[in-house]
């Protein structure tokens, strides 16, 4: 079985969010970059677990981005994965990114394409569904469990107001979230091995963007907390009722 894991580079969860160039660009100075946590902890680690259970599984990693995304691919390779690919396309919109991955996955004959449920920077939740549509295969979204056997995938996925268990024949696309696997820390052998694993650069196709980000905006600063003395909790209820009018 061939698994393709989609890897996105995102700012660290604790990074300061600021913009430059007239609010058109994320201010990347001094920002630590990480593998998007949903891609890493859930999609990639689950792929590694499937390979640990069945040595015939191969794992390829793909990212769509500039050369500055390569350290993130190496980090992912240190956790696991056999080969990696970077499609050279900077600032692509969701559809362009999905089109690159879908084209690559179709040509490569992958059985399973795994993504995180969303990236923590754009919060689009779009790539997995778009890839599945462009490949014309099923999409199991928001999966919390995934097993594969006999050419068939079984997944537990979150639906509105609960969860359900799905079965479908491969190939398909699964977006992964909490519950799927546990975070792992790469060991020294993995980090050393990642240096020599293949990282190939692939040219992007000419798919056009469907959207463009015009500008960013920061929310207005909070006025600051209004503290109520601990011996007068009734005053808090009054403020919520009469001032904020939320209860």
């Amino acid at each position: 079985m061939k698994i393709l894991v989609c890897i996105s580079k995102t700012p660290d969860t604790t990074a300061k969010i600021a913009f430059e160039d007239n609010n058109k660009k994320f201010a990347a100075d001094g920002v630590q970059w990480i593998i998007n946590p949903y891609d890493e902890w859930y999609a990639l680690v689950r792929a590694i677990e499937l390979k640990e259970a069945d040595a015939s599984v191969s794992i390829h990693l793909i990212t769509v981005g500039g050369a500055d995304a390569e350290p993130i691919l190496r980090k992912a390779l240190a956790l696991g994965g056999d080969e990696s690919f970077r499609v050279h396309l900077e600032n692509g919109d969701a559809f362009q990114v999905a089109a690159q991955i879908a084209g690559f996955a179709k040509a490569g004959g992958y059985d399973l394409v795994l993504t995180g449920k969303e990236t923590i920077d754009y919060n689009g939740s779009s790539i997995g569904g778009m890839i599945a549509e462009l490949m014309d295969v099923p999409f199991l979204s928001h999966a919390t469990q995934l097993n594969v056997s006999g050419g068939k995938a079984t997944a537990v996925r979150e639906i509105e107001g609960g969860e359900e268990t799905n079965e479908a024949a491969l190939p398909l696309v699964v977006s992964c979230q909490k519950g799927m696997a546990e975070q792992r820390i790469p060991n020294m052998k993995g980090i050393m091995g990642a240096r020599t694993k293949p990282l190939k650069v692939v040219d992007a196709d000419t798919t056009a963007a469907l959207t463009s980000i015009e500008r960013f905006e920061l929310p207005p600063a909070k006025a600051g907390v209004k503290l109520v003395p601990a011996d007068q909790p009734e005053e808090l209820v009054r403020l919520l009722h009469e001032e904020a009018r939320v209860i």
Partner: peptide
Amino acid sequence: KAFAHVNIL
């Protein structure tokens, strides 16, 4: 933590 203004083309 922020907003984006996205143009649908």
